[in-house]
Amino acid sequence: MTRHLYPLFSLRMDITRPLVEKVALLARLEIPPADADRVAAQLGRIVTMVETLNKLDTKGVEPLSNPTGLVDAFRSDEPRPSLSRDEALANAPDKVEMFLRVPRVVE
């Protein structure tokens, strides 16, 4: 995997239509062709706003992903009561007997 290394202080990302279409596929969303330019422009404005972060020097700053400081909450590995199969399947949009039905994934 190649990582593109952008010098952080000159980063100005251009949100193009092909980029948005690629991201939409990754996100499992569709963008109607008539909408793609508008969506790209809108995301571009948000990304530009976000890039104000580059005004800050964060060299050596430890990233903060979780504010609690809690780590590794363990529990004992014992069976507990859980949902019945009928309850777990009750909201499924398509099911056959005790299975969820999906389109064929292996040819």
Partner: peptide, 14 residues
């Protein structure tokens, strides 16, 4: 990832 997500988490620390 580094340019956006990691950067934002560093600013979160600040």
């Amino acid at each position: 990832y580094e340019a956006y997500y990691k950067k934002a988490l560093q600013v979160r620390r600040l």
